[in-house]
Design a protein around this nucleic acid. Structure first.
Lengths: 216, 216
DNA sequence: CATGAGCCGTACCGTACGTTACGGTACGGC
DNA sequence: GCCGTACCGTAACGTACGGTACGGCTCATG
């Protein structure tokens, strides 16, 4: 089990360095070199190694730093009417899709995926737990509250979340990761979030449809 | 516009070399070196460079070679009863999910994603056009035949396919790419394909539900 | 003021890897 | 039998980059 989500507390100066590294990571991808980071951040390589140990540690710190900055708006599961639930889910979808299609998320996922192939670094796990899993932890209480209020119908909230994730993201993330430059506009994000919410409620809503969610 | 899907016709010996490289790619990830390929394939590096130009060319050839080997079963859109359509979609889903969760696909996508970040190589595009887009081209005629027969209801077959893709794959691919070792069993694949097909038909089926696909 | 910690800039080391070069071998055609 | 071609094996070259060492600067603390 991964311990804490954010167990990294950088000093202001370290934050500046990490921001510079983040910018470089977005523009240069995995070609990020220690020398380039030092140059961009106007610090010495020795400092980088003192602070972060090695390149691996720097990358890990970058991921955690970014994770600590991204805020998906907290949703309060108290508005339990159908309209409020729908809006909560849709807003969540907008935030999630906005983050996932952002160039920072794309760059971060790219390096994590690169390293997941060869060395046994924990980068992939860190991204997974600060990204995908953290998202599930946010939305699932809302879904369960919706179920408790008789608005939704599902057995496993994890499975329900995964379906929502699929309806929302579809092939967008993998296409962006592979370099397919479909300029994801904010309007597109809102449209997609609305569509995914509609479809999710059509599948898991407990309205008198009767046969939308049977398990064969 | 990408020209042809398979414009690469290797000799048998070249196929052997590419198979060896493919095996190394799966086990070693992007740490694939020219020396390792030559050693594994029992050929000289000079031959590699004569045949493929440079490392980039070798990777490109590997991707195309694998793409030429993967066969998603062709579906004939003639069986237009509801049951046949459902089975066609479900079989397609099984094949697609099986390929996507295979270690070869994961390794290939990893290197393509790595290179999409830095250099301007076409690897990402090649993977995209031989993978995701080729799949769409396979299923869309089936979906359109289903619509023509009054069994499905959608406006845009591309959008419909993307929704099916999302319902089928959900977060599975990105988790595998990030190194999340959820042993994807064949049984799980069949279950997922069945579930995705159910959900897809629930959303896009033209059965007397009446309000599953309105555009707000 | 003295001192020492922390940091910057830079030079440097070791190594890994892409790429090239070259000697040696097998084989089909003249 | 000789030549050209294609290939293997290996050595060598150039470069890029991770990591380290060191001199000099700043500044807080005693």
């Amino acid at each position: 089990m991964p311990a804490t989500l954010v167990d990294f507390e950088p000093t202001p100066r370290q934050g500046e360095v990490l921001d510079a590294a983040l910018g470089l990571l977005v523009s240069a991808g995995d070609a990020l070199t220690m020398s380039a980071v030092a140059r961009q951040a106007k610090c010495s390589k020795e400092t980088l190694y003192n602070w972060f140990g090695d390149r691996q540690g720097l990358l890990t710190a970058i991921v955690k730093w970014q994770a600590s900055k991204v805020g998906i708006p907290e949703i309060d599961p108290t508005r339990l009417d159908a309209q409020g639930l729908r809006r909560s889910i849709e807003n969540f979808g907008q935030s999630l899709l906005g983050v996932l299609t952002g160039e920072i998320s794309v760059a971060l996922n790219r390096v994590a995926i690169s390293h997941a192939g060869s060395d046994h670094s924990q980068l992939g796990n860190i991204v997974l737990h600060n990204g995908r899993f953290a998202m599930g932890r946010r939305l699932k209480p809302v879904l369960e509250a919706g179920r408790a209020a008789g608005l939704l119908n599902f057995e496993n909230s994890e499975e329900a979340f995964r379906s929502f994730f699929g309806l929302l993201v579809r092939d967008t993330q993998i296409r962006l990761l592979l370099g397919d430059a479909e300029a994801t506009s904010p309007g597109q994000i809102n449209t997609d979030a609305a569509r995914a919410t509609e479809q999710f409620i059509a599948l898991f809503g407990a309205f008198p449809s009767g046969d939308t969610s049977p398990d064969p």
